[in-house]
Design a protein around this nucleic acid. Structure first.
Lengths: 144, 144
DNA sequence: AATGGACAGTTACATTCGTGACCAACTGTG
DNA sequence: CACAGTTGGTCACGAATGTAACTGTCCATT
């Protein structure tokens, strides 16, 4: 009689751990800035690339276009980003962070990096291996 | 000016990969059995432990009690599990798989294990490292 | 230049999910 | 044994998410 130990099963473990890490990470930007995960991803992408369309943000941060659309509107209402329609293609809107948005980004990034470093430090020598394996796993899963 | 590469950022990568793996895995049991993830987890837990309360299932499979409640009802309506109230504590219900549920479990488990093995095989020697690191990471994150 | 298909982004609708209130049953303290 | 607090499970509600339809724009073909 075949059995499976759920707590050892890779898809389950990945989900569980990813959820726990995200939850923890949320306590980095949550209390001070009250961001959702989609909003954080949009902020992070715009902080990284300066100007970008919603479509491109979705591609880069692996989010559905409606998710991006809502996160963008939320950040816009917060005056953290601005949109202007593109010259070349008036269907798309070029999004950029406002000064306020940049300030928030600059506040959060060091905390985010510190959070990540703390995790990796606690992992010690296993950290390097984890990152390598994740890289490979990402490629494997993408290739389907 | 501090920057952060979202695509390299650990919480994001974990989420992304976990989601992709789950998505892929869903194609193992999805088409034939049309299960949601919570339903799969309940099934897997009962298949593993024979008899269990909803509370215990939630603890073991890391699900909110309402999620468990709904998944249990769905499986019950499908006649995959049965409930009887406990003798010792009449608040709780002891859940067990029906013959039908066991049959489904027996069908899915080999596919699930094959799916996992295929992933680990493709990871090659990195697989061992990944599992070790995940184990450690799980402990670290739980300890907060 | 006109038309049809593709595409960026938004909106409406249905589904899923978590929070909090709730009920029934247990447990401990007096 | 009475009462207060706790616990297992469900339900109602609001928030978040995905699917599908829709609007406006672009572009290829005629």
């Amino acid at each position: 009689m075949a059995k499976l130990q759920l707590e050892q099963f890779l898809p389950y473990r990945l989900n569980r751990i990813a959820g726990a890490v995200s939850q923890e990470f949320r306590s980095v930007y949550g209390p001070h800035h009250d961001l959702t995960i989609p909003e954080w991803r949009v902020l992070a992408t715009l902080g990284q690339f300066e100007a970008m369309s919603a479509k491109a943000i979705g591609l880069h941060s692996a989010m559905h276009k409606t998710k991006v659309s809502r996160a963008v509107r939320a950040l816009e209402e917060r005056r953290w980003l601005r949109r202007r329609s593109s010259e070349e293609d008036r269907r798309e809107e070029i999004l950029t962070l406002t000064t306020l948005g940049q300030k928030a980004y600059q506040e959060i990034v060091p905390k985010a990096l510190a959070f990540e470093r703390r995790l990796l430090d606690e992992l010690g020598p296993k950290a390097e291996r984890l990152l390598e394996a994740l890289e490979r796993l990402e490629i494997i899963v993408k290739a389907r």
